[in-house]
Amino acid sequence: MRSFVRENSLSLFFGGIFLASLVGETFAGMHQFNAQQAAVGLGQLTWFQYVLSADFAVDVAENWQSEFLQFLLYLTATVWLLQRGSPESKELDKAGRETDKDQKVGRHAQKDSPSWAAAGGSRTRLYSSSLAIVMGAIFLGCWLVQSVAGWAAFNENRLQQLQDPIGWRSYLLNADFWSRTLQNWQSEFLAVGSMAVLSIYLRQRGSPESKPVGEPHTATGVEG
């Protein structure tokens, strides 16, 4: 048991703080929503009603979609794009999808390689991009949920202001949808770009996301 926890401590830690943060968000979000409702003399939601509300759904989905987009772009951009001196970049002569030998696929697969890496053909092609495909699907799914939940929350607000609701397609062109989307995207892109550049010059001893402390600034694609 102790061994299991130690060997999976990274995913357990992030899974735990994710759930704690999400639960915290339900309570903070409910109080914020109810305070806004009370200010204009409207009804309050219970915790359960708030968790099922469009207001909560759009707040969650807009953050989730941007996180999965961030990793999707980082995953695919780093196939081709390089950053001299960054541990987040491949070595400067390795841009691209690399050879089958480098990637250990088809006849270059090892005994313990995943079976679809050794299978060849469409299964290997699919498996070779499976991480990006799943990340992309989750991103698109979350973005779709954001658009629907955001549309419902936006229309709820319009009705409070004695205005007609608008259609989903109109909402996709509305500033509210793009404001929610872009405010999340810009923060993700800033964080990823900062990591790629700051890790050229700065170190975190012991982290695989950093170069070893003594590694020169010019070393590219070296992880600690």
Binding site: G43, Q44, D55, A152, N155, E156, L159, P165
Partner: peptide
């Protein structure tokens, strides 16, 4: 939509809101 509803009649529109 959530805690709000719009009811349209031939002559006018009514807005209703949900309380506990």
């Amino acid at each position: 939509y959530g805690t709000m509803a719009q009811i349209r009649y031939a002559e006018e529109t009514v807005f209703v809101t949900r309380f506990r």
